[in-house]
Design a binder for these strands. Structure first.
Lengths: 191, 191
DNA sequence: CCTCTAATATGATGTGCATCATATAAATGC
DNA sequence: GCATTTATATGATGCACATCATATTAGAGG
């Protein structure tokens, strides 16, 4: 092989990361192949040497996005007990910071409504990510109540998502604060 | 005028209703002008006699969708006290029926994630609808706690939205049931 | 029954996009 | 430094769509 052994793999990774960001920022249908390739300094034609089609890229990008936030949370909560980990998670997820940066946030808060309309490979990637996150939360909860974990995640994503629709910043912040409190109550962290 | 006085207005209404359904089913960007006109038995060209452009239609369709569900809930909860109205609302909103029929459901559960990326007129219509719904819930709550109302709405929409991503029907139903219970707890309806 | 005008249809234009066939260029091993 | 092969670029194709200019038709008023 003439390019370095790792060159193609590196390019693929870069494309994937750009896509993971772009998909969250503009949605699966709002983003174009050419745009993502340009982001990496390439042109659109080379794309098909890395992915069979756009749908495969989007699916991989969603896996990547979930993977990124998953690793981040593992890192930040490593060594904590369940109670502390849950509290940390809420304080990182249900925030203005998350609301204001969908492109590096949780795919659920950013893509929930449009994902059911995507093709099967994309939906599958999304569900994998959702289930992994539910699993993580479940392990942190007393008695490992999976149903509760899912419902808590719904509340967190719903709060971030709805706060993005509220133009009055103070009201949006208040919504997030109310949600954090409700979540910690449900988790048994506060009374 | 040669057509009956009300003809144009009736056509506009029909287009609007078709759009309100289509926008929820396929998203603002997933739906085409020609498709909506065909739904009403017309061709695409006539569209611009009714709306200046697609964006205006989408904004009007979102108003219409919020209006439809608003009127429906007013009708169903008319005469109830706050407690009973809230309980009824939860039992209608956080359901499998709602999950399975986005095209006639709440625009928040169907459009939340992609709406922040729409143009201003569409975002404004959406926020009007959100605020109206928050207002309705607020009036039903003891002490009229607006922040709580918003947070409750986030949890409801989040639960329906997330349940749409879960392919295992039983698990999705369980998520909805858990959410209903959590919501009624927060509303002070059950212990 | 005919006229006239508002409502709708036809068809064209331009744009953006995914995909692919083919051309070019990069850089390693010789 | 050259040949070879692999990565990337160029450019073409076809489709879906919004928009608009122009043509046609429906049908109430005379």
């Amino acid at each position: 092989m003439r390019y370095s052994d790792t060159h193609k793999e590196e390019t693929r990774k870069k494309v994937l990361k750009a896509a993971a960001k772009a998909v969250r920022a503009k949605g699966p249908d709002g983003v174009g192949v050419a745009e993502i390739m340009a982001e990496v300094g390439l042109t659109h034609g080379g794309f098909y040497a890395h992915f069979p089609n756009k749908e495969a890229l989007v699916a991989a990008a969603i896996d990547e996005a979930f993977g990124q936030s998953g690793r981040r949370f593992e890192r930040l909560t490593g060594g904590m007990d369940g109670r502390e980990a849950l509290s940390t998670f809420v304080d990182l997820y249900v925030t203005r910071e998350h609301r204001d940066h969908p492109e590096r946030g949780c795919p659920i808060a950013t893509l929930s409504s449009e994902l059911p309309r995507q093709g099967q490979p994309v939906r599958e990637a999304y569900e994998r990510g959702v289930q992994a996150l539910i699993g993580r939360l479940t392990r942190w909860l007393p008695d490992e109540r999976k149903g509760l974990a899912a419902s808590l995640l719904a509340e967190m994503a719903g709060a971030v998502s709805l706060s993005r629709a509220i133009s009055d910043g103070a009201a949006a912040d208040q919504l997030l604060a109310d949600a954090r409190r409700s979540l910690k109550l449900r988790m048994g962290i506060v009374q």
